[in-house]
């Protein structure tokens, strides 16, 4: 986040050139690109340097990058590349004016680092797994287990909406806390199953009360079907308390070092 702010201040200084390029990531030179447009509906290309390549695209002059369409385009393009090739994805919004200079600086200066990362991620893709409590099912569980919550529920139920606000807030807080108390064990069960197939698993922070766990999974391409089968089985076991959502394959965002 602090990097973003610094960039913002810099952008206010000086004049803006007419030609800008958007950066998607770093990959091996010669990577076959999918038939997919990127940010600004423009087709990306490779800017190669000594075995490495920047995945970059022209963008229309005066483009507004931070739009819903461009967010999706960035993600979809990198995910499409990652289906077949290894790519180190960049964070959304990297716009540069001199591609050759960036190529020289980044690819030359950090060559060993990028090659090592590409090598480490070779053959793998990322999946995002999100496990969520079914609110009604788990609320019923919580009510059955906790006397104070049950009493507050009975006291506030049927009362006019403006009445008993403090009690309602307390009830909600206790319920949110109760979800939190259930989370570690349930999250661990989900992560365990993910680890049985994935090369690596990273749990992401999530603040939503009904969230069980949100994780990034690094999975060998050949084991993607196996992952899906395992998680389908797990989803069946966990129903109806917990739902699982699996998105991917994606570019390995969670497994590149900054």
């Amino acid at each position: 986040m602090s990097a973003g702010t610094g960039v913002a201040e810099r952008a206010d200084v000086g004049d803006v050139p007419d030609t800008l390029y958007y950066l998607y990531g770093v990959t091996h030179a010669g990577t076959k690109l999918p038939d997919v447009d990127g940010v600004g509906a423009m087709r990306p290309r490779l800017v190669e340097s000594d075995g490495l390549a920047l995945l970059a695209g022209d963008v229309p002059p005066g483009i507004t990058v931070a739009t819903r369409e461009n967010l999706l385009a960035h993600g979809h393009l990198l995910d499409a590349v990652a289906q077949r090739s290894t790519v180190l994805p960049m964070r959304f919004g990297m716009l540069v004016e001199d591609l050759d200079a960036v190529s020289a600086d980044m690819l030359t200066a950090r060559r060993d680092e990028y090659l090592a990362q590409l090598d480490e991620l070779d053959g793998a893709v990322q999946f995002s797994l999100r496990a969520t409590y079914d609110e009604d099912v788990v609320l019923a569980e919580i009510l059955a287990e906790d006397d104070e919550i049950r009493q507050l529920n009975e006291a506030t139920r049927g009362a006019p909406e403006e009445a008993m606000r403090a009690e309602r807030v307390r009830l909600g807080e206790l319920v949110v806390t109760a979800f939190g108390a259930k989370r570690p064990a349930d999250a661990e069960a989900v992560l365990d199953r993910a680890r049985s197939v994935a090369r690596a698993v990273v749990a992401r922070a999530s603040g939503a009360p009904a969230a069980v766990v949100d994780a990034a999974l690094l999975v060998d391409r050949e084991r993607a079907d196996e992952l899906e089968e395992q998680l389908e089985r797990l989803a069946r076991e966990l129903a109806p308390r917990i739902r699982l959502r699996l998105v991917g394959p994606q570019a390995p965002y969670d497994f590149v070092a900054d």
């Binding site: 990097a3 913002a8 952008a11 800008l20 999706l72 993600g75 994805p89 964070r91 919004g93």
Partner: peptide, 28 residues
């Protein structure tokens, strides 16, 4: 395919960053 909610957290928070040369801001 992934929805905006699916990609948002990932592509704003994760991935390689370069500081120099960047002309766009995502502060908003």
């Amino acid at each position: 395919s992934s929805s905006l909610a699916d990609v948002l957290d990932i592509i704003l928070d994760k991935g390689l960053v370069i500081d120099a040369y960047v002309r766009v801001s995502l502060v908003g």
